[in-house]
Protein backbone atom coordinates (compact mmCIF):
# COMPACT_ATOMS: atom_id res chain seq x y z
CA UNK A 1 0.00 0.00 0.00
CA UNK A 2 2.72 2.46 1.03
CA UNK A 3 4.77 1.42 -1.99
CA UNK A 4 1.90 2.21 -4.36
CA UNK A 5 1.32 5.59 -2.67
CA UNK A 6 5.03 6.45 -2.90
CA UNK A 7 5.19 5.42 -6.57
CA UNK A 8 2.16 7.59 -7.36
CA UNK A 9 3.64 10.52 -5.42
CA UNK A 10 6.98 10.25 -7.23
CA UNK A 11 5.26 9.88 -10.59
CA UNK A 12 3.21 13.01 -9.96
CA UNK A 13 6.26 14.95 -8.78
CA UNK A 14 8.31 13.78 -11.77
CA UNK A 15 5.56 14.68 -14.24
CA UNK A 16 5.14 18.09 -12.61
CA UNK A 17 8.86 18.77 -12.91
CA UNK A 18 9.11 17.61 -16.54
CA UNK A 19 6.17 19.82 -17.53
CA UNK A 20 7.69 22.68 -15.54
CA UNK A 21 11.02 22.17 -17.28
CA UNK A 22 9.38 22.36 -20.71
CA UNK A 23 7.27 25.37 -19.73
CA UNK A 24 10.30 27.19 -18.32
CA UNK A 25 11.89 27.54 -21.79
CA UNK A 26 8.82 29.33 -23.12
CA UNK A 27 8.60 31.43 -19.97
CA UNK A 28 12.22 32.55 -20.02
CA UNK A 29 12.24 33.28 -23.75
CA UNK A 30 8.81 34.96 -24.03
CA UNK A 31 6.40 34.54 -21.14
CA UNK A 32 8.29 36.56 -18.54
CA UNK A 33 8.44 39.66 -20.77
CA UNK A 34 4.77 39.23 -21.61
CA UNK A 35 3.92 39.08 -17.92
CA UNK A 36 6.18 41.93 -16.80
CA UNK A 37 7.50 44.61 -19.15
CA UNK A 38 10.43 45.35 -16.82
CA UNK A 39 11.92 41.98 -17.88
CA UNK A 40 12.50 43.37 -21.39
CA UNK A 41 16.22 44.02 -21.81
CA UNK A 42 17.19 42.48 -18.49
CA UNK A 43 20.54 40.64 -18.42
CA UNK A 44 20.87 36.90 -19.05
CA UNK A 45 21.92 36.26 -15.44
CA UNK A 46 18.59 37.64 -14.22
CA UNK A 47 16.80 35.11 -16.46
CA UNK A 48 19.05 32.39 -15.10
CA UNK A 49 18.09 33.37 -11.55
CA UNK A 50 14.34 33.17 -12.23
CA UNK A 51 14.60 29.98 -14.29
CA UNK A 52 14.32 27.47 -11.38
CA UNK A 53 11.27 29.40 -10.16
CA UNK A 54 9.68 29.01 -13.58
CA UNK A 55 10.21 25.22 -13.37
CA UNK A 56 8.73 24.92 -9.88
CA UNK A 57 5.94 27.52 -10.10
CA UNK A 58 4.81 26.85 -13.65
CA UNK A 59 1.19 26.16 -12.75
CA UNK A 60 0.72 29.60 -11.18
CA UNK A 61 2.60 31.30 -14.01
CA UNK A 62 0.67 29.51 -16.75
CA UNK A 63 -2.63 30.53 -15.13
CA UNK A 64 -1.50 34.14 -14.93
CA UNK A 65 -0.33 34.15 -18.54
CA UNK A 66 -3.60 32.65 -19.78
CA UNK A 67 -5.59 35.25 -17.84
CA UNK A 68 -3.45 37.98 -19.35
Amino acid sequence: MIEVAVDILLLLMGTYLVLGFLFSFYFILKGASKMDEDVEGSPWHFKLIIWPGAVLLWVVLLRKLIRK
Binding site: A32, M35, D36, D38, V39, F46, I49, I50, P52, G53, V55, L56, L57, V60, L61, K64
Partner: peptide
Amino acid sequence: AVSSHDFWLKNL
Protein backbone atom coordinates in the same frame (compact mmCIF):
# COMPACT_ATOMS: atom_id res chain seq x y z
CA ALA B 1 14.65 30.21 -2.38
CA VAL B 2 13.67 30.15 -6.06
CA SER B 3 10.91 32.70 -5.47
CA SER B 4 12.98 35.10 -3.38
CA HIS B 5 13.75 37.54 -6.22
CA ASP B 6 11.65 40.73 -6.40
CA PHE B 7 10.39 39.56 -9.80
CA TRP B 8 8.40 36.84 -8.05
CA LEU B 9 6.96 39.15 -5.42
CA LYS B 10 5.71 41.49 -8.12
CA ASN B 11 4.37 38.82 -10.45
CA LEU B 12 2.99 36.25 -8.04
